[in-house]
């Protein structure tokens, strides 16, 4: 206790929470540096919503690109239903380029944070492929979906008929992290699948769920799905 009391009491409080406490005030208003820091963090979050995934990172992992029925960011935000449906030419491209009926199909999408893909794909993707290979799974032809929503998994499932699908997608950015990614997984995705059939590992970023750890965990879950032939609330883990 003595050691504690020698510590700056404000620092003692601040160590317990990432919340922006102990910021002080001038009148009833916050101090300048805190206001500007807050607005800067918001700017980073907004930029990551409106950003684009650099071509270089997609070509690094030989991911070809397809689009959904979404034509702009405003369109994406207002019509989540359109982000669940692939553009017509995308269906043809998938049929032409991709291995049919693989054990596991990996799909990447910007979703609500292009920055999440830019920052995390380089760590997650190779580790994920390693992990899936370690279970001797046949991996399909990976690709990138621009303007995708989580449920675009179902239409991709209808076209390529994988046993299981992993979608790596950018999450809605927060101020703490504008670059957080989620991995959604589903056994035999297709029409009529419900949210409770999908599984998710969220908060994948350097200060959240570490990318390498997430990749290993995804591999384990996919292997279990293929063994138990189910996913979501029905899977015993």
């Amino acid at each position: 206790m003595l050691a504690n009391s020698k510590k700056d009491p404000l620092e003692t409080l601040k160590q317990f929470t990432p919340a922006r406490i102990g910021v002080g005030r001038t009148g009833t208003r916050p101090l300048t540096r805190d206001v500007l820091q807050f607005r800067t963090d918001h700017a980073a979050a907004v930029d990551s919503v409106y950003g684009t995934v650099p071509e270089s990172i997609l070509s690094e992992f030989s991911l070809f690109s397809v689009t959904t029925q979404v034509e702009s960011m405003e369109h994406y935000l207002k019509r989540p239903d359109h982000g669940r449906l692939l553009a017509d030419e995308a269906k043809t491209l998938l049929q032409k380029n991709c291995l049919q009926t693989p054990d596991v199909q990996v799909v990447v999408s910007d979703g609500l944070s292009a920055k999440a893909i830019e920052e995390n794909l380089g760590d997650v993707y190779p580790a994920l492929i390693d992990s899936l290979e370690s279970y001797n799974l046949q991996i399909g032809t990976s690709f990138f979906v621009k303007g995708g929503r989580v449920a675009c998994m179902d239409q991709i499932g209808e076209i390529l008929k994988p046993k299981a699908l992993v979608l790596l997608i950018g999450e809605r950015p927060g101020l703490m992290s504008a670059e957080s990614m989620s991995a959604y997984m589903c056994y035999q995705p297709g029409k009529g699948k419900k949210e409770s059939d999908r599984m998710v590992i969220s908060n994948i970023h350097k200060r959240g769920t570490p990318p390498i750890e997430a990749a290993a965990h995804i591999g384990t879950l996919i292997d279990k799905m293929l063994q138990q032939k189910t996913s979501g609330v029905h899977l015993i883990v």
Binding site: T17, R20, G27, T28, P30, H42, G174, L175, M176
Partner: peptide, 24 residues
């Protein structure tokens, strides 16, 4: 919420300062 930033729900509301300011 502290400085308008909810570190759990990941959205922004009003800060404690803001409500004190509206009152004043």
């Amino acid at each position: 919420v502290p400085m308008a930033d909810d570190c759990m729900l990941n959205y922004q509301s009003l800060s404690y300062h803001d409500i004190a300011t509206v009152r004043q």
